[in-house]
């Protein structure tokens, strides 16, 4: 039950972050700030640990929502993860926000079904400087993870 209340609390603070993010994007002032995000070639789920090595966290399962704008509109994702005391993230689910019982990951059902037929090579093993695809959710994802870790700091 503690997990449930924790999730709820974080979901609410996640919503606050959504509003702040949207406002920042709308004003455009965020373009001047340096981002610590890595380039898209290493946008992985481990990104968020960097500056908080000395912090300990309340172990548990969390969720938060991240939102951001594109020329085509606002995007929103829900991030669920399990956090260890040292800040290690052990399980992550990213869900595009969808209606009630229909939030099943579309990626798995459609894109994945076809794309499984296509051969892939680990990007980490390639000598490339950039990645091109559809990496648009990273902004919302990183915001949600930062929110969770800030709230979970013991």
């Amino acid at each position: 039950m503690t997990h449930l209340s924790r999730s709820k609390k974080l979901a609410m603070s996640g919503a606050a972050a959504v509003l702040m993010l949207t406002a920042a994007c709308g004003g455009g002032s965020d373009t001047e700030s340096e981002s610590t995000d890595s380039s898209s070639s290493d946008e992985t789920t481990e990104d968020a640990s960097s500056t908080e090595t000395a912090t300990t966290y309340t172990v548990g399962d969390y969720s938060a929502e991240g939102s951001y704008q594109t020329p085509g509109g606002t995007q929103s994702v829900e991030v669920e993860l399990s956090l260890e005391a040292d800040g290690t993230i052990t399980a992550v689910t990213v869900t595009p926000q969808a209606d009630g019982g229909n939030s099943e990951q579309f990626q798995t059902k459609f894109a994945g079904g076809i794309a499984d037929e296509v051969v892939g090579t680990k990007i980490d093993d390639l000598d490339v400087s950039k990645v091109s695809g559809s990496s648009l959710t990273s902004g919302g994802f990183n915001a949600a993870v930062d929110e969770i870790k800030a709230e979970a700091a013991a």
């Binding site: 051969v119 990007i123 390639l126 990645v131």
Partner: peptide, 28 residues
């Protein structure tokens, strides 16, 4: 480079991975 949409006005070629649509750790 805006999230993988890239205008390259540099002086040397660059190599860009094409992200697998089913798994962002893979390139096709």
């Amino acid at each position: 480079d805006a999230g993988g949409d890239i205008a390259h006005h540099g002086t040397a070629p660059i190599r860009v991975a094409m992200e697998h649509p089913g798994d962002p750790t893979l390139a096709v």
